[in-house]
């Protein structure tokens, strides 16, 4: 694998975890009218920290990190510029949300807006990674994969910040997400096999990769342990996080570009 992609693996994973937490923090406010608590504050601190670490990591994938500021130049056509902008707005809104939670003036609309902008940011990430050089993912698949990560890690990691009685709400979302993620991620490489030579090579790479199967194993473990719909074991979010990390490494390392097959049959 190209180690230069490691910063992007961290950036995408950590920011998607942050968005997942923000979405379920807002959802809990909406569904249960959960008031500001010390744990909620910790959750928003974690969200901000994840965004911060993710953004710092992203700097390291640039050949010229000081040029970062210019990344908004081509917002008219480049999804990467839009991604930076939406994540910047998400970061600011998350900071405002934390302030409001701290000062106990937490406003449900503010949290919902932050979550919505977070989802919009993940949408831009999905579009940015649908690279035209990669036939297998030059479509909505990156968006689907990333959203599944958001809705897997969000409710799973949120269990560290909520009371036991709220676990039922989180598992009611986590179970179907894990099931959908498992099905999608299992089926997609086989669909790739039926595509052109480049897609076929991508499918073969995934099916031969321990990264892919360990990712599926983590999802399967999650599915098994949340099936009773009541509580999420404390170790499970870590297993799911490791699983998503392995899956993300596979995403960055195993997709074949069409330029790699020049002179061959497409």
């Amino acid at each position: 694998m190209d180690t230069r992609e490691l910063p992007l693996i961290l950036f995408t994973l950590l920011t998607q975890l942050a968005v997942g937490l923000a979405v379920f923090a807002a959802l809990r406010q909406w569904v249960t009218v959960e008031g500001p608590s010390v744990k909620t504050r910790n959750e928003w601190i974690a969200i901000l920290a994840l965004i911060g670490v993710g953004v710092v990591a992203a700097f390291f994938h640039l050949g010229k990190p000081l040029g970062f500021i210019r990344m908004l130049t081509n917002i008219g056509t480049a999804w990467l510029s839009r991604e930076i902008l939406t994540f910047a707005i998400f970061g600011v809104l998350a900071a405002v949300s934390l302030y409001m939670v701290y000062t106990k003036v937490a406003n449900g609309w503010m949290l919902k807006l932050t979550a919505l902008v977070g989802l919009l940011a993940v949408f831009t990430t999905g579009m940015a990674y649908a690279g035209k050089a990669m036939d297998a993912i030059n479509n909505l698949l990156p968006l689907v994969f990333f959203m599944l990560t958001v809705f897997t890690l969000g409710p799973a990691v949120a269990t560290y910040f909520v009371e036991e009685k709220t676990h039922a709400l989180l598992t009611s979302i986590l179970f179907p997400t894990l099931l959908a993620s498992l099905i999608v991620r299992f089926v997609v490489p086989f669909i790739w096999l039926s595509g052109n030579a480049v897609m076929n090579a991508t499918g073969q790479n995934f099916l031969a990769s321990p990264l892919h199967w360990l990712h599926l194993a983590a999802l399967l473990a999650g599915l098994f342990f949340v099936r009773n719909g009541k509580s999420i074991p404390a170790w499970l979010p870590i297993v799911l996080l490791i699983g998503e990390l392995l899956g993300r490494i596979a995403f960055f390392a195993l997709v074949v570009t069409s330029g790699a097959n020049l002179g061959g049959v497409y």
């Binding site: 050949g63 040029g67 690279g131 050089a133 069409s258």
Partner: peptide
């Protein structure tokens, strides 16, 4: 160019090349 390599992900023909030394 700031060396984000997004063009490498986008060019279907693999034309842009990344210069590690120059970034």
């Amino acid at each position: 160019c700031i060396g984000c390599r997004n063009c490498l992900r986008n060019c279907p023909f693999g034309a842009p090349r990344y210069n590690e030394e120059e970034g």
